[in-house]
Nucleic acid binder design. Structure first.
Lengths: 211, 211
DNA sequence: AGTAAATTACTGACCGGTCAGTCAGTAATT
DNA sequence: AATTACTGACTGACCGGTCAGTAATTTACT
């Protein structure tokens, strides 16, 4: 009946393959970039041969797009749910959103996708376009609403909203990107918690509407 | 007499080659990344054949390192000179340093080097190490001194200095990185001036030691 | 001055390794 | 016997790197 219940080991594997391949692909893409990633390696890490990979994804580029898509969508869904159900001051909302993003994306291997897009956007204009429309625009909407709520309530100063969105998200993105670029080469820095605390401290003080 | 005075077209070309090749290489590396850049294309853009490129640079990786080195050093020299000769409040100094960096690096093709390092650090640990030691450490020193000056004078609050350095530089880096990743794909944003103004406004308000 | 030899700057055809993508074949399951 | 899931050897394109050769220029010599 249920197409998702496996009736044999073979079927069970088949169901698991795409997710396993995507996970392996994310690892390699994030670590080495698109061009330097070998599909033989990705397949091997997922426990299959390269031929099998091509049963599930039509090309390297298709695989790349699938990684981007499936990685980031669930996070935005949760973010939007969070915004709706929040009650209380905008200050707490903003802080909660940034911290939650760090938990869900920045601190996990999903954070690698940010670095991946920055690195490869030039080589994949259509993926970049897609990412912009479905990820960045949606993400910025979340922050915009939090900001507007604070300004409307007189809690925040009337800063330029569009640029403020980018300005306040930049440090979080940079922290994430750092983990996947220079940090692994022994160029480490102090812990993310201190960094985030300082960022929020500066940001909320900077936004505060002084009496 | 002067070894740099060309006495024939042929010699004149030879003197100009390395710089021309480096400029072409910067363009391609920044646009496409290291792996996707073809030396045939770089050579062609510089008006020579690939063989000639190999007369001046031993390998693709050597070329890459040379691009990084020669691009970024002069900027730091100027930054340090600026710090020494500044008089007045830390607020103005900090603002001046960030704006000057934007003028010299962010807004020029040198900005591409930031994106390049983020993208390729994982594939070139030794270049990343080199960049960290000679560029990032030096750059952070500039900002640290400006911050410390402000805190010592009671102008700024006593934030955590090391993380504040990164936090306040992140938006400028992100603005630069943006230009070389998603922006060219029609995913543009409002003008850099507004962005920088908002950043400085939020930052200096956030740092301000309130009475 | 004229010219032959030596040097310099550069070319582009070529080689060899790598890797995305293919497909005939195998083994498990129905 | 038929179908499904998978394999891995193979191909062909691509590109970093090489090098024998060419053309421009300088030097050396008469």
């Amino acid at each position: 009946m249920n197409q998702f219940v496996a009736t044999s080991p073979r079927q069970r594997r088949k169901q698991a393959r795409p997710a396993e391949l995507l996970a392996a692909a994310l690892d390699h893409f994030v670590e080495r970039g698109f061009a330097a990633t070998k599909l033989d390696d990705v397949a091997a890490q997922a426990g299959v041969s390269k031929g099998t990979l091509y049963l599930y994804f039509g090309s390297k580029e298709e695989l790349f797009k699938a990684v981007i898509r499936q990685g980031i969508f669930p996070v935005l869904d949760e973010g939007e749910a969070m915004l709706v159900q929040h009650e209380g001051d905008a200050r707490t909302l903003l802080q909660g959103m940034l911290l939650r993003w760090w938990e869900l994306v920045g601190a996990t291997s999903l954070g690698g996708i940010s670095k991946l897009m920055i690195s490869e956007a030039g080589n994949f204009p259509d993926v970049a376009q897609y990412y912009h429309e479905h990820v960045i625009v949606r993400g910025r909407n979340l922050l915009r609403q939090a900001l507007e709520r604070g300004i409307a309530a007189g809690e925040f100063r009337a800063v330029d909203i569009e640029s403020a969105i980018d300005v306040m998200f930049a440090p979080v993105i940079m922290l994430t990107v750092w983990r996947y670029s220079l940090a692994p080469c022994g160029c480490g820095r102090q812990d993310p918690e201190t960094y985030l605390r300082t960022h929020l401290d500066l940001l909320l003080n900077g936004l505060e509407n002084k009496k």
